[in-house]
Structure formats: structure tokens, C-alpha cells
């Protein structure tokens, strides 16, 4: 009887997610017959073009790299934060959690624009550096402070990605550290391991589920990000998301855009399958 309750949700998923996905997938095997018409002919031409043109592979490769670096930075920054939150007690815990979630209440576009104000040549970071520079009297030695070019390069894109996706890393990490029985850590210390050793041999392995979910939650959307590289990277630091967007809009080449999208999807599926395979092999250690 209760499956009725799931009907609206199922309907929603089928009509607005699965069906469009299927259409895009079908389109990736199509070709343009005129300026406005596209026909699905079952051709592999779009994939051949995507894989065969070095510039697209390069940009996919670069997107993977930027996402990987940004994910790693997210993990390194988020882990201590999550650790701290799970160890503080009472209202501090609540406040810190709210602080992590707070950015969700502000529109992504506005937050990204705000980053422009932070990173531009007359932005807050440069102001800060200039202040330190002048306070140390360095301007009398080296001359006027030269603002750093922080925007429209891979740095600004990576920084933007790390900033925007940080909460998605903190929350699963927090959940798994919170669940971790702290007596494992005490037992490790008791057995003679140092704090560092305890961290790498006990804490990290036992919070691996959180680490993996965090990485998946952050890495996959980063790979497809287009707003952040568009605003912060400009034309110098594009990611695959920008290229796909351009195929659908400016270039009006739906089949090629679809093929690029699905190349990304296949890569993602591949990574997830690999993770499932690895998890399956180690299932004996599940808690």
C-alpha cells in the first residue's frame, strides 16, 4: 500500500531525471541535419571527434587534475575541522556545524561573485598583502607594492572549487568521526602508538567510509562545475563544464555536447565501479 507514497517521487525522477538523461544519451549518437534539426542516426562520430581532438582530451584531463587537487585540498582542510567539531561539546558543536552549513543559505552565484571581490587586483587579499608589505617598510626598499594576479587562472578556479564544496566534505567526515568509538584511539595510545601513528593507523582507516563519501560528493560535482570556472577562470582556465555548456548554447551542437557529457559520465561511472570493487574486496573489515 505504502508504495503509493513513493509514486510522486518516482514520477519526478523518471520524468525530470531519467528521461532527460536518456534523451541526452540518445543525442550523443545523433548528427545535425540542418541548423535547427538533429537526427539520431546511431553514429559514433561525436565520440570519435571528442576523443580524437587533442584539445578536448586535454581539457578533460585538466579538469580531472584540477578537481583532484581541489578535492585533496578540501579533504586536508576539512578533516581537522570535522575532527574539531566532533570533539567539542554542547553549544559550540552546534555553532560550528551551523557555520559549516551557513554558506548553503546564500546563493552560489552571489558567493562566487564575492570571491571576485576577494581575489581581484584591488581585492581584499591584495589589500591585505599591501598592508603587510607597507607595514614592514618594504615599499621603501623594493618600491611600490605590485598587486598579485590572483584571478582568471587555475589558482582562482581551484580556490573557488575548494571554497564552494568544502561543506560537502566536512559533513560526511564529521558523521564518520562522530560515530568512531573514541576508545579505539585510547587503545592505540595505550598500546604505545604516538598520536601521529594513531591518526594514520586507526583514525584514518576507521573513518574511511566518510573520507570516500566526501571525495565522491566533492569530486564528481567539481568535475562538472561550470559556473565557478566561468566566473573565476574566464577564458584562461576553462574546465570541461564550460566546453559542454558552449556546445549546447553558443555552438548549438547538441550531439557533440551530449557526447562530451557522457564521456564525463562514463569516467565517473568507471571511478564509482572501481570504488565498489575495492570496497567489495575489503568487505571483511567492515565494522
Amino acid at each position: 500500500m505504502f508504495w503509493f507514497l513513493a509514486a510522486p517521487g518516482t514520477f519526478w525522477l523518471v520524468v525530470f531525471f531519467l528521461a532527460p538523461l536518456a534523451i541526452v544519451w540518445a543525442l550523443s549518437f545523433g548528427e545535425q541535419t540542418s541548423l535547427v534539426d538533429t537526427e539520431i542516426t546511431g553514429t559514433l562520430e561525436n565520440y570519435v571527434r571528442a576523443v580524437g581532438t587533442p584539445v578536448y582530451l586535454q581539457i578533460i584531463w585538466k579538469s580531472l587534475w584540477i578537481s583532484a587537487i581541489a578535492t585533496f585540498l578540501c579533504l586536508v582542510v576539512a578533516y581537522p575541522v570535522a575532527f574539531l567539531i566532533s570533539f567539542v561539546r554542547g553549544r559550540w558543536k552546534m555553532l560550528l556545524l551551523v557555520a559549516v552549513i551557513l554558506p548553503f543559505w546564500i546563493n552560489l552565484l552571489i558567493r562566487t561573485y564575492a570571491l571576485l571581490a576577494v581575489f581581484r587586483t584591488r581585492g581584499f587579499v591584495n589589500f591585505g598583502f599591501e598592508w603587510i608589505y607597507n607595514t614592514l617598510w618594504l615599499d621603501t626598499i623594493f618600491g611600490r607594492f605590485q598587486p598579485l594576479e590572483l584571478l582568471y587562472n587555475n589558482f582562482s578556479v581551484t580556490a573557488g572549487l575548494v571554497y564552494v564544496f568544502m561543506p560537502f566534505m566536512v559533513l560526511p567526515l564529521y558523521a564518520s568521526i562522530e560515530r568512531l568509538d573514541k576508545s579505539y584511539l585510547e587503545a592505540s595510545l595505550d598500546l604505545g602508538a604516538s598520536q601521529t601513528r594513531t591518526f594514520f593507523r586507526i583514525t584514518v582507516p576507521l573513518t574511511m567510509p566518510g573520507i570516500v563519501s566526501g571525495i565522491i560528493l566533492v569530486f564528481i560535482p567539481m568535475l562538472g562545475a561550470f559556473l565557478i570556472p566561468d566566473l573565476l577562470g574566464g577564458t584562461n582556465a576553462q574546465m570541461i563544464g564550460n566546453v559542454i555548456e558552449r556546445q549546447f548554447k553558443a555552438a548549438n551542437d547538441y550531439p557533440f555536447g551530449a557526447a562530451l557529457s557522457f564521456l564525463l559520465m562514463y569516467a565517473t561511472f568507471g571511478a564509482l565501479a572501481l570504488r565498489a570493487f575495492m570496497a567489495g574486496r575489503k568487505s571483511g573489515m567492515e565494522i
Partner: peptide, 8 residues
Amino acid sequence: QSYAVFPH
């Protein structure tokens, strides 16, 4: 008390 035997 919980034994704290490392599960991994």
C-alpha cells in the same frame, strides 16, 4: 570495557 579491538 568495549574491548576496543580494532575492527580493520
